[in-house]
Design a protein around this nucleic acid. Structure first.
Length: 496
RNA sequence: GCUCCGAUAGUGUAGCACGGCCAAUCAUGUCAGACUCUCACUCUGACGACUGGGGUUCAAAUCCCCAUCGGAGCACCA
């Protein structure tokens, strides 16, 4: 078929492809998209969705991808200096290298300019109300006394704000919307507030004491960057209505928008960046790449490949429903990529020594990979290690095979005694005997870190050459060899 | 309380804009079997869903209304 009509096969494939993944876009002009995280921690699986979806669309439609750091809160969600780099690294790892990098805290003067223009046009005013007072008025659809101040007066107050004459909480700049808007979330929102905590970036430091809030910063940036399509979480749906007021005052065109629902992952539950930060400081996690964490760094360290993560994220599509998923699907994607290339090794956890009566030392020859061919050699003495749970399951009289080595029969269980009974595969073929794996006495010390527990045991030699590669420990699962120190190997569990 | 949004198998998703071809797609999962010197991979088969109720229509997963459930916003967080 392939030979006779290759174009038919190509056609078949093409027809099936659009079914999956992201919905097609109707693009009018050039496509400019941005991914806008707050670098107050490293990117997580949640961020990955944003990174992947934005990059996929810009790739597909030949658009431009921008990463914009929305780091305009030096206090409550204080940015983390390392995280800026981590985001760039992880984006690149995910195959989403941005065409442009923008840092909001570098562009404060431009936001000030827009603010000033808005005040002049009567679209913004400085409000001195206490929070509770304003909220009470707002809930009643009533304007406060500052709302009708003349632009000139507002400009003066604004200048004073910038010069640091007011304390935190004393004044804010509000965008004038519709104080009687049926949705209370829209009524005269805050665009700038006073924060006297210096920004963590040394380039910025204490240069500014008036900081924009996300809705304002994002509104201005999306215009300055020429963003044509915004995809963001549905928690930000109201942002659009709010931001449109700014666009209307300034005469700008608002980008197209799309939203997706909240993603929750069973295995991780509800972990917030700030919560993780605290737990790491307390020593509950070894760091941001602890295998129990939903960060991209952790996923990477565990041996999940970027291609698998991309596919996983793209297959979610763009629904507004909140979804709660399990990592099984991600693991299945990853396994498809890894299984054909991962070399096989023996690793025995919770090891138990097994002395084989009547056995002769032998060099076992086992395939490096079940289909790819090639053999590895494992020298076995008359005593080997087997895993604790295999040892416990043995019964007197049971005949079984040590994989790629020889057959044994259990003669006693306490203490455990076995004897050599030959090398013939017929035992397995005819008697359907079990096959268990083993490790040599002089093997490597291996530690496997998994989200559930830490496995300590012995592994065959050879795996020490696979640093940074994903291999399969037979009858255990896939792992990524993380580091080797002399005769000690540390591996991270990938998945079954 | 006010305002938005959503609802397809265990999970995720396609189909819904233009009703019929939907006894509903694909993936994952679970179970069974085949293959295999791994409990991996591969292959075969089975399981499993249109939230409920009304309405419109010859015909509704698809359109309308109500109910229920779920989520989000109403911050000087992002």
């Amino acid at each position: 078929m392939n030979k006779i009509a290759p174009e038919l096969i190509a056609e078949l494939k093409e027809k099936k492809e659009p079914e999956k993944g992201l919905p097609p876009l109707e693009i009018k002009g050039a496509l400019v998209m941005r991914f806008a995280p707050n670098p107050n921690g490293p990117p997580t699986l949640g961020s990955a969705r944003g990174i992947v979806v934005n990059s996929e669309y810009t790739k597909k439609y030949n658009g431009k991808l921008i990463i914009r750091f929305d780091d305009t809160d030096p206090a409550t969600k204080r940015p983390m200096l390392e995280a800026y780099t981590w985001y760039l690294e992880d984006c690149e790892w995910l195959g989403a290298k941005p065409d442009e990098v923008v840092i909001a805290s570098d562009r404060i003067p431009e936001y000030y300019e827009v603010a000033e223009e808005l005040i002049r046009r009567g679209g913004a005013y400085v409000c001195f109300c206490e929070q509770e007072v304003f909220k009470a008025l707002k809930d009643e659809k009533k304007a406060c006394q500052h709302r009708n101040e003349k632009p000139q007066k507002n400009l003066e107050s604004w200048k004073k704000m910038l010069e640091g004459e007011y304390k935190e909480q004393e004044a804010v700049l509000r965008i004038k919307t519709d104080i009687a808007h049926k949705d209370p979330a829209i009524r005269d929102w805050v665009a700038f507030r006073i924060i006297k905590t210096p920004h963590p970036r040394p380039e910025v430091g204490d240069k500014y004491c008036v900081w924009p809030l996300l809705d304002f910063e994002g509104a201005v940036e999306d215009h300055l960057l020429g963003t044509t399509l915004i995809i963001r979480g549905k928690d930000l749906t109201d942002s659009e209505t709010r931001q449109r007021y700014v666009y209307k005052y300034m005469g700008w065109t608002y980008p197209e928008t799309m939203h997706w629902g909240r993603v929750q992952i069973h295995e991780f539950g509800k972990l917030s960046t700030s919560g993780i930060k605290k737990a790491i400081a307390e020593g509950q996690y070894s760091g941001w790449d602890d295998p129990r964490l939903p960060t991209i760094r952790a996923i990477k360290r565990r041996g999940i490949l970027p291609e698998a993560l991309r596919k996983f994220m793209l297959d979610l599509g763009l629904g507004e429903t909140d979804i709660s998923l399990s990592l099984d699907t991600l693991y299945a994607e990853n396994r498809k990529i890894i299984d054909p290339v991962a070399n096989r090794y023996f690793f025995v956890w919770d090891p138990v020594e097994l002395e084989v009566e009547d056995a002769e030392p032998k060099i076992a020859k086992a395939p490096i990979h079940p289909t790819r061919g090639g053999l590895r050699e494992i020298p076995a003495g008359t005593t080997v290690y087997i895993t604790g749970n295999d040892a416990e399951s043995l019964k007197i009289g049971e005949r079984l095979r040590l994989k790629d080595l020889y057959n044994i029969e259990v003669t006693d269980i306490s203490p455990l005694k076995v004897k050599f009974i030959g090398t013939d595969m017929d035992l397995v073929k005819k008697e359907k005997a079990r096959i268990i794996h083993w490790a040599p006495l002089d093997g490597l010390k291996v530690r496997v870190l998994s989200p559930e527990r830490e496995f300590i045991g012995v592994g065959e030699r050879g795996m020490e050459k696979e640093v940074d590669k994903v291999v399969q420990f037979e009858r255990f699962g896939f792992v990524r060899i993380d580091s080797v120190n002399g005769d000690e190997v540390v591996a991270y569990f990938t998945h079954k």
